[in-house]
Amino acid sequence: MDIDLRKLRYFVAVAEELHFGRAAARLHIAQPVLSRQIRAFEHELRAELFVRDRRSTVLTEAGRQLLADAGPLLASAEALRRRVQRAAHGRQTFTIAFMPGIIVTAEARAIAQRHPELAVGVVRTSWDDQAAVVREGRADVGYVRLPVDQRGLRLRPLFTEPRVVVLPGEHRLAGKESVDLAELAEERLLQDPDAVPEWRDLPNRPTDPEPRPRPVLTSVEEKLEHVAAYAGVVILPLSTARFYTRPDVVHVPVGDLGQNQVCLAWAENNRSPLVREFVDIAAQRAGDVGAPMPGGAGSGRSS
């Protein structure tokens, strides 16, 4: 059986909204049309995806499984479309994605020098989209910081670096040589806890009777603005904290936090020789003993 990608996109919209009306508006189609498409999709799959009544729409076990698998499949299809379009429109391109604090100039130059006909570009990513940019084909490779959703990706570990807590300049811990994670238990974390999994296991964290929603901050600059305003703290890799210096915040090493792992990621179905070549370039530079890490701390990597 072939999977109809259009119906799969319709299903994802309904599964994420859990409301046919909102999903239809999001897809810019009429609600009766969407309902017919979902029923047809269920018939093709021979599985009920939703339990529906007048008041609610709930995913079945089959629906939850399909939603879990749909993202990488749709991303793979989008990446295929992008690669075909690029191949059909002239000059070959190669795009490198990178996270804040990571400098990729040397690697970009290396691949460009080997292939003068290649248009090499770079794109900055964030915690929220670092994997999607690669899965969807917006970049051929990406420097990602773990943890990351690895579905649909292949990873090559490159280097590690310490993590630090960023504090307001006059914070009670600002002058310390280092802190332990437990000393931060009373602080408000301004970023997605999935980026700092150890935060969830902090003992003796006070319970806020009126918990404030975590602000949606997509850039390092936004996070630092909130830190400087005493709205909370963030945990960053050392190179990122050093790259985005400002006079009203400081960073302090967190002694009992493990190192941040940086990997090169590419779509598992992207078999371009250029990707394999770039992986070798990146791995060789990561193993260049004695070269400084971005931001100045030693890690055995140069860029």
Rank of each mutant, 00 (worst) to 15 (best):
R36G: 04
T160I: 01
A174W: 03
D248G: 12
V179W: 06
F20W: 07
L224S: 01
P292A: 11
R109F: 08
W199A: 10
E277M: 15
I111D: 06
R145T: 10
A40P: 00
L274H: 11
V166S: 03
R109A: 09
A70E: 06
A139D: 09
R6W: 00
A174L: 08
L74F: 05
G63E: 08
N269P: 00
H251C: 03
R64F: 04
E210D: 13
E136F: 00
R39G: 07
G71Q: 10
T160E: 14
I29A: 00
L66I: 06
L5K: 07
Q261C: 00
R54K: 13
I96D: 05
G152T: 06
D69H: 08
A79Q: 01
D280L: 13
G169Y: 01
A131D: 12
P197F: 12
M99Q: 08
A229L: 11
D53P: 08
G71F: 11
R54Q: 14
H251P: 00
A97V: 05
V275G: 02
P193V: 03
A282Q: 02
C263G: 04
S303Y: 06
R6F: 08
L257I: 12
P253W: 03
L264G: 04
P197G: 10
E225H: 06
A68C: 01
A62Y: 06
A291E: 12
V249L: 03
L67N: 02
D201G: 03
G21E: 11
L189N: 11
V196Q: 05
A282L: 04
L155R: 10
A267E: 07
P116T: 06
S35K: 13
E277R: 14
V166C: 06
L217G: 02
T57G: 00
R200A: 15
E210G: 01
L173K: 14
L66P: 07
V220A: 03
L146M: 15
L59E: 01
Y244R: 06
F243A: 12
H226R: 15
A195P: 00
L238T: 11
L45T: 13
R64K: 15
R91P: 11
L184W: 07
M293E: 09
A62S: 14
N269A: 12
V220P: 04
E221T: 08
R151C: 05
Q31P: 04
F278R: 09
E78M: 06
T60I: 09
P72R: 10
E48G: 12
V164S: 03
G296R: 07
E177T: 13
H28W: 06
S76Q: 15
A241R: 01
E268P: 03
R188H: 07
R246V: 03
A30G: 15
V227T: 07
L73S: 02
R154A: 04
I29M: 14
N269D: 15
V33S: 12
S178V: 02
R156C: 10
G300C: 08
V133W: 02
Y10N: 11
A30W: 08
S178A: 15
E48S: 13
C263S: 13
L173W: 13
L67C: 07
G101A: 13
R55C: 00
V250D: 06
P273K: 04
I38Y: 03
P168W: 10
R212A: 13
R36P: 00
